[in-house]
Amino acid sequence: MNTALAVSGLVKSFGRSRALDGLDLTVRAGEVHGFLGPNGAGKSTTIRVLLGLLRADAGDAELLGGDPWRQATELHRRLAYVPGDVTLWPNLTGGEVIDLLGRLRGGLDERRRDELLRRFELDPRKKGRAYSKGNRQKVALVAALASDAELLILDEPTSGLDPLMEEVFQECVREERESGRTVLLSSHILSEVEALCDRVTIIRKGRTVESGTLADLRHLTRTSIEAELAAAPDGVAAMEGVHDARVTGTTIALEVDTARLDPVLRRLAEIGVRGLVSRPPTLEQLFLRHYEDDLDKTAGTAR
């Protein structure tokens, strides 16, 4: 298995505040890797260390088999980056910026450039100052996607795009995966990560809290079940691993720890199932659980 980038025990402080506090992140070649965390978790700082824009205080970072700080220039030929907040030069047109960035990276696929401009409905004749946030982001996206880089690093690339353009973006990323490119996609939009990513790393406060495939992570979580039964669901709500059960007549809605799914389903079957809806946990729920830890800690004393 090839590793596109690997980071371990990364530490970076700005003055007294610690932005990264022992962060780990591994992205395999050819995968779309979701990099999730709330605002201020350290996503952008990690990416800037990977790009050699910041120097880590401690820890190891390897990018495409090289050192992101010392070999920055060579490595950057093989990757393309879209910042979360794209700044353009006020008097250069979008088309000029796309060409410039392409040339700096060492080449641009002309056909793909034109196709992407069309798909993203971007006017390349407008000056940088006239673009909205979303359009500035499209300029950087077109430049990155039209390059022949093997690794794409996208830092919250859709934060300014409307839902229609987000759809176009998702299509493009799927095409990139099919053509074998590696994508590191930082985001706090969970549905986007869920729709696109093979594996996910969740960070909080500069630390990695969870990492794995979406399936792996679901093991750690609960499945929601709604069942219509033949009789009243006596005792189900009190079973081990069942949470938030709500009973109305012969209908029950509950959450169950994935590890306790078997006994609960067996019990429901004994009562007699007339209808059943079961849903895997969404990333929202995954995410919220990490928040809950914090909330519990602060609320725990009050309770």
Binding site: L51, L53, T87, R105
Partner: peptide, 10 residues
């Protein structure tokens, strides 16, 4: 932030 765009591009 414009320097970032150029410095990240080889």
């Amino acid at each position: 932030g414009a320097a970032e765009l150029v410095l990240a591009a080889s």
